[in-house]
C-alpha cells in the first residue's frame, strides 16, 4: 500500500486533486487526469521507487490497480 499512499500525496499536492476522491476504484480520467497527466503520475511513481512500468502496465484503469502493480514491481526489485 505504500505506492497508493504515495499516489494520494502526489495527486493532492502536485495535481490539485481533492483528497476525498482518491479511493482505490477511482480512474485517472474520473479524477481529471488526461493521458499526459497520467503518464507524469507514473513517471513520479517510477522515480520514487526506482521501478519501471512496461507499456502494457501503463494501461491500468484504476489508482488501486496502478498501486498494486507498483507494489509488485517494488517487491520484485527487492528479490
Amino acid at each position: 500500500m505504500k505506492s497508493f499512499d504515495f499516489l494520494v500525496t502526489l495527486l493532492v499536492e502536485e495535481f490539485g486533486v481533492n483528497a476525498d476522491e482518491l479511493v482505490p476504484d477511482a480512474s485517472p480520467a474520473g479524477l481529471g487526469l488526461d493521458s499526459l497527466s497520467t503518464m507524469e503520475m507514473v513517471r513520479e511513481l517510477e522515480d520514487e521507487f526506482g521501478i519501471k512500468f512496461s507499456t502494457e502496465q501503463v494501461n491500468f484503469s484504476t489508482l488501486g490497480e496502478a498501486a498494486a502493480l507498483a507494489d509488485e514491481l517494488i517487491e520484485a526489485k527487492g528479490l
Binding site: 495535481f15 490539485g16 497527466s37
Partner: peptide
C-alpha cells in the same frame, strides 16, 4: 491557474 493545468 488550477494546479492540474499549471503543472503543464
Amino acid at each position: 491557474i488550477p494546479k492540474m493545468s499549471g503543472r503543464f
